[in-house]
């Protein structure tokens, strides 16, 4: 069985600055995979590369065995990969309901239809309502997304990402800036919503990472310096020196 995500020898240069140097990473299907590393290590850039937001300077990226490097983000999304953004990236003037519903439309096969009433699509309505419940924003459905609180916007961000039912979900620091209680709620939500799917998550909170992830990869200066189970990563000396040592103590 091919891996959900397979990254081979990927490089990314901005101008002549090499941000991603020789990246190799494999995420198995159904796995919850956390990427950790210091600020500026290239975690978000890695997300951007996989999701098609930017193109690699060299190397190859495969999704479920198919090469996707060079494809546009919507093409990659249609193949079953959906990502969230570190900086909230929603449809600000549209209501919470509209935000989620738009994210459901392609996956339910309605495409660019201009002959269907969007209010009369039972499958769309059912899925939208369920996601709104899942992200605890049912009572805020008619509020423009731009007027939500920060934590609510982060939950909406997750909601939009999972709404299409993609098999591979990538979340970039979903709990950043949340309070302890909000983080706990968000993690429970992520755990539940990604059941049976592949999850790649960038996260700074080590308790979240070690509690949630099946495998962890440590990214430092554009390279994976270690990849393994939480126990292996905890025991890895190189990781301790390069990263955990400063952060965890």
């Amino acid at each position: 069985m091919s891996a959900a995500i397979e990254i081979k020898d990927v490089q990314k240069r901005f101008g002549n600055v090499s941000i991603i140097r020789d990246l190799n990473l494999s995420v198995a299907k159904g796995e919850r995979h956390a990427i950790i590393g210091p600020n500026g290590a290239g975690k978000s850039t890695t997300f951007n590369l996989i999701s098609g937001y930017i193109k690699p300077s060299a190397g190859e990226i495969r999704l479920n065995g198919d090469a996707i490097s060079g494809l546009r983000p919507f093409e990659i999304n249609r193949r079953g990969l959906s990502r969230s953004f570190q900086v909230t990236n929603v449809f600000a003037r549209m209501t919470v309901l509209e935000n989620v519903r738009c994210a459901v439309l392609w996956a339910t096969g309605h495409g660019y239809a201009f002959w269907k009433n969007v209010d009369h699509l039972p499958e769309v309505k059912r899925r939208t309502d369920r996601i709104l419940d899942d992200i605890h924003l049912g009572h805020r459905r008619d509020v423009p997304a731009g007027l939500l609180t920060y934590a609510e916007q982060r939950e909406l961000e997750i909601g939009i990402t999972i709404a299409g039912g993609a098999s591979v979900i990538m979340l970039d620091e979903p709990t950043a800036g949340m309070s302890l209680a909000e983080t706990e709620r968000a993690v429970a939500l992520i755990r539940r919503l990604t059941e049976g799917r592949t999850l790649v998550i960038v996260e700074h909170d080590m308790s979240v990472v070690f509690g949630l992830a099946d495998r962890i990869s440590v990214l430092v200066y554009g390279q994976i310096i270690a990849s393994g189970t939480p126990e292996e990563i905890r025991a890895n000396r190189q990781v301790k020196e390069a990263y955990l040592g400063e952060e965890a103590h």
């Binding site: 546009r72 449809f91 549209m94 439309l105 990402t161 299409g164």
Partner: peptide, 16 residues
């Protein structure tokens, strides 16, 4: 409307 609000994000929910 989604394209009006945020064309970049639209690409990540399956639309060109």
């Amino acid at each position: 409307n989604a394209v009006r609000d945020n064309p970049e994000r639209v690409e990540f929910i399956g639309y060109d």
